[in-house]
Design a protein around this nucleic acid. Sequence first.
DNA 1: GTTTGCTGCAACCCGATAGTTGCAGATCTA
DNA 2: TAGATCTGCAACTATCGGGTTGCAGCAAAC
Lengths: 104, 104
Amino acid sequence: MTATLVPVFAALGDETRWSILAALGEGDASASALAGRLPVTRQAIAKHLAVLQEVGLVEPVRVGREVRYRVIGSQLSATAHRLDAIGAEWDRRLAAIKQIAEGL
Amino acid sequence: MTATLVPVFAALGDETRWSILAALGEGDASASALAGRLPVTRQAIAKHLAVLQEVGLVEPVRVGREVRYRVIGSQLSATAHRLDAIGAEWDRRLAAIKQIAEGL
DNA sequence: GTTTGCTGCAACCCGATAGTTGCAGATCTA
DNA sequence: TAGATCTGCAACTATCGGGTTGCAGCAAAC
């Protein structure tokens, strides 16, 4: 269902990919259309879109002869919640360790 | 204050780094100590710790002649919340676009 | 004061990946 | 049918990053 967490972060760890996501945020667009707005080649964008699709952050939609891509915001939210849970767990555990260390 | 978002994700996009974070979750440890538990060299771990420190996910603590590292869970939570906000914003905007597209 | 153990720096290797150009195939339009 | 566009595949380059080994420096222990 949801992709494993780490590859999602790897996908999000690239500026160009965020530019693409930002551009897609203003409406679905094809790789060619995005190439007009961003300072990289269509093929480079196509590769990035493949990566984003792989981890479920984006989804292709055929419209005639072109392939538009749409951002899946819920995947972003899901990832955020999993990360938040981990962060909270860490704080909890570290607090426990700290108490032990303080001799309580 | 909080590091820019993208480098944090880049830091979280590596399995070994998660192993290190997980190991640190059971208590602060030095690079040498971690090298005993993980299947990589001390220097490799040192590099990873430098990356993690750079983005504020981890914090060094001198203890005598060794340098222990501690996870900063709150940074993880902060990142999660920023990501969640972005995801929600995206969903909101895309819903609006969808309504427009449906002629409403 | 010598030995032990931990840190830090530098050079190096290699695989992954961001980016490019070029071309072939498919599809809409005139 | 011909021409214009958009996609997809392949080859190639170059940089980055994860990992290694080796060595020098320094703090603790004995």
